[in-house]
Design a protein around this nucleic acid. Structure first.
Lengths: 246, 246
DNA sequence: GAGTGGTCTAGACCACAGT
DNA sequence: CTGTGGTCTAGACCACTCG
């Protein structure tokens, strides 16, 4: 049951996070095999020299990730699974660079325009209010992956002089003090138009995965509306759902 | 700031859940408008006569749902958004009945077969092990919506004599003591085959949203593998992402 | 400086599952 | 019955943001 868990109280990293990280790597690394009982918060807490709520906080984080399952009166067990990709909360951010897929970006449109009705509604701003309009095409391995159209209220950020071919949009926003926190996405599918298909290097009417997103920053403001069209043959979206009693 | 919050200590519903529910309806109902500061855990706790961790637990649940945003040193604020629906691990059947969309189901295939290689891999069972194979077509408003193919290890549940045209699959599993807890999904798109398109009442090669899912029960076992093909013109998948520091 | 959320402790009692 | 997780308390100190 015990895998070399050691906590560093002098570290700036919170104890529960250290614990969660070490348990996670024990699971993903195979030291804790599926079905293993992890249990007894109380004993774990004592053996680690921390309080029970701290252990609990770490465990609950892994439950939320879908790695552990707990039942009252029974215990906590490692989920039975060929553990796949981690969850995509950071699909918010530039997770392609993290995967060494060599993304490159072509900026097709970068302009400031009065907000069309649909965009104004999504951003929660008055119609005709100036918004930045972006149309970018992203490649990985020199093959088109996604056509990205984005709108940002103009007063939120100044993108003049920013080269979006070399700087991710979210990175540029962060540099302007805008920190993305919450995104609501709708995921659907449709056939690409002739033009879209062609830009993405696909035959006409090819199936596309379409992700429409509204993003809020750390103050709760809506700061971005985007519609991203992925080549269906090159992209899938992964989610883990957990049934937390509500 | 204060909306008639009242807690019932004699209720079996936990305090933090009562709190979260009341705050959520205050937000969704407009009593707490976007941008409103909710803050001060300590004051809230005192005014409600509960401890700070209890208030905190309620607030964090709403942060997780994307309704609140918090910043250290600043406070907790209501997110600026036309709030949409959350996403949980409910079966599609439950979703649709709840929305009065009159789902009906045709069972096209219901049989027990030796697991093909791909299915065995997904379910984590030996090849050739008996599995229940289901193929169902679901309609809403008398229009085809989704073609559902599912596999379940045969020893997990006995579906003999269960009419899946009137009983949802998850409902049938629950009745057999199988409680679904965690699901990993991959969402993609592709053109339907001629047969798939035809069954779903669509022109050939129509775009389809495809959801592939592996589901675990409360003990962590893999209990179901499913591939669901949605008509892209009738279905979208909604997700809320929250950037929790990890 | 004052005010906020972030972390942590050391207890307590209850609800539920197994024997 | 015992053992598990689920909930709750009443404090504490720290880290961060603001004026």
């Amino acid at each position: 049951m015990e895998m070399g868990l050691d906590l560093d109280r002098s570290s700036p990293v919170p104890l529960y996070r250290q614990l969660a990280a070490q348990m996670e790597s024990a699971i993903r690394g195979g030291a804790l095999t599926p079905g293993t009982e992890l249990g007894n918060e109380a004993r774990l807490a004592e053996s680690l020299g921390v309080s029970r709520p701290t252990v609990r906080q770490a465990i609950l984080a892994l439950v939320e990730k879908g790695l552990l399952v707990r039942r009252r009166g029974i215990g906590t067990h490692v989920v039975d699974a060929p553990v796949v990709q981690p969850l995509t909360l950071t699909s918010l951010f530039d997770d392609l660079t993290a995967k060494n897929q060599l993304p490159t970006t072509r900026v097709l449109v970068q302009e400031t325009v009065p907000a069309p009705e649909e965009v104004a509604a999504a951003l929660g701003v008055p119609v005709e209010q100036p918004v930045i309009h972006l149309l970018r095409l992203r490649y990985t391995d020199n093959t088109p992956l996604v056509l990205m159209e984005n709108y940002i209220p103009a007063q939120i950020v100044d993108l003049e002089g920013i080269n979006l071919a070399t700087t991710g949009l979210y990175q540029a926003l962060r540099a302007n003090g805008v920190f993305l926190k919450v995104a609501r996405q709708r995921i659907g599918a449709r056939a690409g138009t002739d033009e879209e298909s062609q830009v993405l290097g696909q035959p006409p009417h090819s199936p596309m995965l379409i992700i429409e997103r509204v993003t809020h920053d750390s103050s709760g403001r809506i700061v971005e509306y985007g519609v991203h069209l992925y080549r269906a043959d090159r992209y899938q979206y992964a989610v883990t759902l957990v049934d937390r009693p509500s």
